[in-house]
Computed example of a mutant assay.
Amino acid sequence: MRLSALIIRLISLVVTFFGVAVVVFVLVRVAPGDPIAMMIGPGASPQDIADLRALYGLDKSIPLQFLIWLGHVVRGDFGTSISLRESVTEVVFGRLPATLELAFLALAIAVVIGGFMAILAARWRGTATEAGVDLFNGIALSVPDFLWGLTFILLFGVAIPIFDISGRVTPTLELPFVTNFFLIESIVRLRFDLTLDLLGHMLMPAMALALPLAAVISQILKTSLKEVMHQDYALIARTKGFSETYVLLHEALRNAVTPSLTVIGVQFTFLIGGTVIVERLFSYEGLGNLAIDAVINRDLPLIQGIVLLFAVIFVGVNLAVDLCYVALNPKLRHG
């Protein structure tokens, strides 16, 4: 990617981020409900309410509030949570690792399932196997992630209780964590008892998030594989006596993955957004669960901080995908 193109892309990301900041700031303030009225007691005097509004800067005009808030955001200060009385930055980044671990586990599951289904369908194209894969894709994609979550709770949490359906980790365990990346740290510390416990809590919400994404990956990769299998290099490999499976895995797969990369990146951002409802279903202590609490409590600084962080993740993932796509495609790299 040329330097000028990269600079233009970075500028567009800054403009996007600013636009998101304006929209979320205005929307949370014109929405009905007064956060001060929700946090103050019924016997408070008008002066108490006025003092509290002044404390959180809500007594100023919306444009002035935005400029003051934006100035703090540029310095990394997202304000103080109205409901939690803590720094928004500390609260948000304290919950972010849990959501990232859940999202990446869901992505890994989706890539494995989707890739396996696509390879099956491409290998036995035109048979009942491909029809079965298409049926799986249709069902997995038509059922939303939160409904998958409810199904898993009923099946594996109630009917056959083999997985935990609430929380992130069993509280009674010894938790010697230094960071909030519990899963990663448990592996590094060789505390595999904690690793298994964490995975036991994460597996069902991760599967609920992964299945719709797996269907998308399967369909896109299957289409790419079927196209690549008719290319010249695949035909040449067949004439050399290589089996169809060898041609698929060693010749076609590496060329078919690249077109799927952009789709996976875009879908991953939607997957992170989907954690909001799924985390609530499983009482998972992540950013999505925190977002719902912030909306219920009309916690304006916390809502703004969470939405902006989601926006940063969205634009960051898309930029990373673009760079990876260019790195894997020499024509774009030198174009």
Results as ranks from 00 to 15, higher is better:
A5G: 14
L6K: 04
I11K: 04
L13I: 15
L13A: 14
L13F: 11
V14A: 01
V15P: 07
F18E: 06
V22Y: 06
V24G: 04
V26A: 02
L27H: 04
V28L: 00
I36P: 01
A37H: 05
I40R: 02
G41P: 04
G41H: 03
P42E: 14
A44Y: 06
S45L: 13
S45I: 08
I49V: 13
R53W: 09
Y56C: 00
L58E: 05
S61Q: 08
L64P: 06
L67K: 13
W69G: 12
G76S: 07
S81Y: 04
S83K: 10
R85F: 11
E90T: 13
G94P: 15
G94R: 01
L102N: 04
A103P: 09
L105R: 03
L105Y: 06
A121H: 02
A128L: 09
S142H: 04
D145F: 04
G157R: 13
I160T: 11
F163C: 05
I165R: 14
G167Q: 05
T172C: 08
F181N: 06
F181Y: 13
F181V: 00
F182C: 09
F182Y: 15
E185Q: 05
S186Y: 06
L196K: 02
L199F: 13
H201T: 01
H201I: 02
M204D: 02
A206W: 03
A206F: 08
L209T: 02
I220E: 12
E227N: 14
V228T: 11
H230N: 13
Q231M: 14
Q231D: 13
Y233C: 09
L235K: 12
A237V: 15
F242H: 15
E251Q: 15
E251P: 14
L253Y: 12
R254S: 14
N255G: 11
V257C: 12
P259W: 01
I264E: 15
Q267I: 03
F268N: 07
I272F: 07
G273E: 02
T275L: 05
I277K: 04
R280E: 02
R280T: 14
Y284K: 08
I292Q: 03
D293K: 09
N297M: 08
R298K: 09
G305R: 01
G305C: 07
I306A: 06
L308C: 07
V312H: 05
V315M: 14
N318H: 08
L319C: 03
L319A: 05
C324P: 09
R333T: 10
G335V: 08
